[in-house]
Design a binder for these strands. Structure first.
Length: 466
RNA sequence: GCCCUUGUAGCUCAGUCGGUAGAGCAACGGACUGUUAAUCCGUGUGUCCUAGGUUCGAGCCCUAGCGGGGGCGCCA
């Protein structure tokens, strides 16, 4: 028999009725009817829904094998797709042959038909993609990544790969993981006090990157518009629902863009990601809307349709001070905004994404463009409901004298950044960029509350099991 | 790093006043003419996180440690 291999997603479509097909996937549940057949539900990850398979008793391995199949078993089914007699699906596959690739012993297989807590599923990170929610997260995450590339490629941005191992501390964005080939055990045995990094692999100290921004700027200052999309590392011992030690970051960098252009790009970018998730993953988004975050779809549609609020830091402080709210951390000009303040602005005051900009220069790193008032810099943060800061960016300081002054002000050794300063020395241009944390975007789109559940294998303090 | 909370069956949890542990689900066996997290009947299941301590007696009280979750800080 010639049978075309198709996905469960294709097989669930009424257009496939009448075809003889081959389906391969994993069993989710089995229901027997003593009328002499069993219902098998197969999932292959191509979509949220399962394919219902009718396994009749005349199959040669029905009594021996099929009747004792359990959740988790892997199968190959060949048969004809028919219109389903049931109400919950359009199609069903009537098996003419069923091969079991591998069984899943119900005594030891951890996953059940019923739902598990996300906390428990984190202990089975290797099996959790087999569940509805994590399958949906994986598909939406993929959709978001695809949107990101399309969004930039359509506008003639170049995808640039910035290094993962770096010598520069970049922006002081956080504690860094050190990369070394020095033998720590030997060093400990010999009780060496002073390490000679000239003996190390790179001849000096090296780290995992905390941002590709500075390297990205070098390409923007040659090729115009670029973006990076890669892994990023922070050795902070952060224990929250929105921090990871290893995460993925998207960093566009654009020559000839000022802060307003940067804000416009960031807004269009977020809207594009949300719109694509809603239109391309309706089934998965419906699951999140129903089981994870009620009202999610309406809220995202509102994000797509509305204008983001743009609020200078100084006005935000005035607004918070006049709000009548009591905050744990009092607000006054010059202090950094805390989570509670950001949450108030985006969740209560405006009920929409908010772009805060023009921060006090003392709060922000040396590379941000200094405004004429001498007090503020052209930095911006995009805050969204539930997640908080999803994007951080700025117009970059492109005036050499100002950059050097700011480095001195913040105690940054200029000699380490000679190549960065060269961009200002030779053909400097106004330019801007921002960084989007992919996992925070996935949280925002899916409504998942813990960032550890939107990345396949989360890294956080004390955790590298998988 | 700080604060709060939690740890009991494969999973979710209950466990009163300190008297040596029990529900639902899953699993297994059976029933059922098309089911949809099927339904109904029956069966089994324990290092009560670990180590000390108090007590005639500890799942329960005390101390320390370890693990999980949440909040804060750092940020994306």
């Amino acid at each position: 028999m010639s049978a075309e291999k198709i996905s469960v997603k294709q097989a669930r479509s009424p257009e496939s009725i009448g075809k003889t097909v081959k389906i391969e996937g994993w069993l989710r549940t089995r229901r027997d009817s003593k009328a002499g057949f069993s219902f098998l539900e197969i999932n292959d990850g191509s979509c949220l829904g399962n394919l219902q398979v009718i396994a009749n008793a005349d199959l040669p391995n029905y009594e021996q094998q099929i009747k004792s199949l359990n959740t988790g078993a892997s199968l190959c089914v060949i048969g004809e797709l028919k219109e389903s007699g049931g109400k919950c699906q359009a199609t069903e596959l009537v098996a003419s042959s069923l091969v079991v690739y591998g069984e899943a012993d119900p005594e030891t297989y951890p996953l059940q038909k019923k739902r598990h807590s996300f906390e428990k599923l984190r202990e089975w990170a290797h099996l959790r993609p087999r569940t509805n929610t994590f399958g949906a997260v994986a598909r939406v995450r993929n959709c978001i990544c695809n949107s990101i590339h399309q969004f930039f490629q359509e506008q003639e941005f170049l995808y640039v790969h910035t290094p993962i191992i770096t010598a520069s501390d970049c922006e002081g964005a956080g504690a860094m993981f050190q990369v070394t080939t020095l033998n720590l055990d030997v060093i400990a045995q010999k009780q060496i006090q002073q390490l000679d990094y000239k003996q190390d692999f790179f001849g000096r100290r090296a780290y995992l990157t905390v941002s590709g921004q500075l390297e990205g700027e070098t390409f923007a200052c040659a090729l115009g518009k670029i973006y990076t999309f890669g892994p990023t590392f922070r050795a902070e011992k952060s224990n929250t629902t929105r921090h990871l030690a290893e995460f993925w970051m998207i960093e566009p960098e654009m020559a000839f863009y000022e802060l307003e252009d940067n804000m416009a790009l960031a807004e269009a970018f977020i809207k594009r990601i949300a719109r694509d998730a809603l239109t391309k993953c309706p089934e998965d988004m419906a699951l999140f809307n129903e089981h994870i975050e009620p009202g999610l779809i309406a809220a995202l549609q509102n994000v797509v349709d509305s204008q983001f609020v743009r609020l200078p830091y100084t006005e935000a402080i005035e607004l918070l001070a006049a709000s009548g709210q009591t905050f744990e951390y009092p607000v006054k000009w010059g202090v950094d905004l805390q989570s509670e303040h950001e949450r108030f602005l985006t969740e209560q005051q405006f009920k929409s994404p908010v772009i805060l900009y023009n921060y006090p220069r003392t709060l922000k790193p040396f590379y941000m463009y200094c405004n004429d008032d001498g007090k503020t810099v052209r930095g911006m943060d995009v805050l969204v409901p539930r997640v908080g800061e999803i994007i951080g960016g700025s117009q970059r300081e492109h005036r050499l004298d100002m950059l050097e002054a700011r480095m001195a002000e913040q105690g940054i050794p200029a000699e380490d950044y000679w190549w960065y300063a060269d961009l200002r020395r030779f053909g400097t241009v106004p330019h801007s960029g921002f960084g989007l944390g992919l996992e925070r975007a996935v949280q925002f789109i899916t409504g998942m509350t813990n960032i550890r559940d939107v990345i396949p294998f989360p890294r956080f303090p004390g955790s590298v099991e998988f």
